[in-house]
Design a protein around this nucleic acid. Sequence first.
DNA 1: ACACAGGGAGATACCGCTAACGAAACGCGA
DNA 2: TCGCGTTTCGTTAGCGGTATCTCCCTGTGT
Lengths: 357, 357
Amino acid sequence: MNDETHAPQKRPLTLRDVSEASGVSEMTVSRVLRNRGDVSETTRERVLAAAKDLGYVPNKIAGALASQRVNLVAVIIPSFSNMVFPQVLSAISEVLDNTPLQPVVGVTNYMPEREEKVLYEMLSWRPSGVIIAGLEHSDASKAMLRAAGIPVVEIMDTDGRPIDSVVGISHRRAGRMMAEAIIKAGYRKIGFLGTKMPLDHRARKRFEGFTEALAKAGLEVIDQEFYAGGSALAKGREMTAAMLARSPEIDFLYYSNDMIGAGGLLHCIDAGIDVPTELGLAGFNGIDLLDGLSMQLATMDSCRAEIGRRAAEIVARSVDVQAAETGGAHGERIELSPTIRRGETLRLRPAHGDYPE
Amino acid sequence: MNDETHAPQKRPLTLRDVSEASGVSEMTVSRVLRNRGDVSETTRERVLAAAKDLGYVPNKIAGALASQRVNLVAVIIPSFSNMVFPQVLSAISEVLDNTPLQPVVGVTNYMPEREEKVLYEMLSWRPSGVIIAGLEHSDASKAMLRAAGIPVVEIMDTDGRPIDSVVGISHRRAGRMMAEAIIKAGYRKIGFLGTKMPLDHRARKRFEGFTEALAKAGLEVIDQEFYAGGSALAKGREMTAAMLARSPEIDFLYYSNDMIGAGGLLHCIDAGIDVPTELGLAGFNGIDLLDGLSMQLATMDSCRAEIGRRAAEIVARSVDVQAAETGGAHGERIELSPTIRRGETLRLRPAHGDYPE
DNA sequence: ACACAGGGAGATACCGCTAACGAAACGCGA
DNA sequence: TCGCGTTTCGTTAGCGGTATCTCCCTGTGT
């Protein structure tokens, strides 16, 4: 180890430096560093030692350009604060860890223009694949995705026409299922609490499916309210209090996510409301973060981990295929089935005095 | 718009394609696409039209290689599930949005070997700067960071020797401050609940500072317990119940994070324990997620947003400086002051019957 | 002793783009 | 009309690697 080892160099290190230090050609160094081709054990060790001694880190920019291979997978999600996407992400990373692929995430904040920009930005790094949340994209985004010539997996949602592959659940169906469960349990005066996000298509679809199923039973949402910003828990609490004050006849509240649902539940507990007999509650997502509440909120699992896993598998597989054959893989379509977790805030059978059909 | 516009091309598009389509040289196209140099409005529009028509997305790999400039900032954090890092991240993105820089995140799961690998991986893309959580890194990681010749900002923690710049709070001091507040309020039988993460140095330092301040007052932690995995809320609840059963004399519980603290609080409320008189509680982080609880948990703000902002500013600034002058910027050191949020679970003055010194 | 297989290493030609310089076209005053 | 500064655009030479081909050197079978 020489003295300059830890000196910050002005000129960045290149293969040439390592090659000079080890007395072999750049090509050989390159081969050693990638464990490729035939290199004798002797030179191999010599090169490795020189590289480590210099603190050389290969330049993937140059490598990617030369080899026309970039082992990155663009993952585009609407938000981080949501608690659901981090879970999808970790499932993706887990799968990708067993491959040479590496995820790179971009966040859109539910804004189509930002999505377009982020997508453009990521595609300009020529990733090997794209995993992107949702089926709704601007025309330009769709065009880019199609033109990229790489596997594209749209995740979370299956209600729509995918560009290539899709992995998710039907949020419309999820909304319907919950409505049906609620009706079956005998609740009739139903209120809805959601987020003020016209661009959260999945929340919208759940709501649509929900009202649709209610309509089929001759019911409709009695009262509804939407919020934006602030602590979801606190908002859930406030909005629940407000709605119950405004529409005291309500016997069920459906929340667009577990967090505001939990806030509502806390309000009910504090207010001494008899849940689930007097009032039922349900959220959406099945986040286990809330497992420690005094009462388990009814919710619906959104299959986050499974979605991430399957999506990553599709990308990994089709990258492999592309490497082997020439033809790109054909789009897969995977619709997962969300399951209701009844918890303790959704009673099982109609309460005495109800008249279920 | 020609018919091939939306046809998936086999041969990826290059500048040459755009240049041929618009009848100018590749150089001119390059200039147009980067809004650089002198190009007449006429050709500019022609080129732009051709690029859009073809659906051309520039290849940053080649661009970066040629220009020796990569506008990426590596952000390396231990975890996503934590809820604290996403907030740091969004502060970083916000600042970086006003610059040409773009964050790329890597996750280490609190494992030094993974950190080393992630760092290596990211450095091989030659980012313009690194923002990395913590001051504890393997020797190899430190060497890489030093050798990279780019601004490095270590964040979250200031208790240690930084490589370059550092932005954070002193967790040791944070622990001390909380201990002092607790003692001042007259609590004497103190229990600690934390995570089983020997590699979460910040949690460790908080605990050390905490016990140190207790020791100075002639006190020590009466009982302690650590958990790993599972829902933090549920764990907080369980562990609190267990500890109170085991050590009923306890009059204060200090939690290493707000989430288990909230779980503990929920247990206390359900168990009818008189908080904060009979038992006091405090957590750490100041996450507003929990604002909706029935009672506001005492906690300490960890300045997440501020840390992210300042760190991003340092990187942005020194990248600018590097572009202008030759000399790298010198390390900055920013220690933020966490503030206690007393909430409602930490009484203000000694309860009747206590004997404060 | 010679042809030949095959491992180990080097030479060469790019990958797609940009920095730097240079040249053409244009405008305008003398 | 010419000279000269501007503006606009093209040419050339890499950036730091990798694919591919070539070459050399061994050892081996006959």
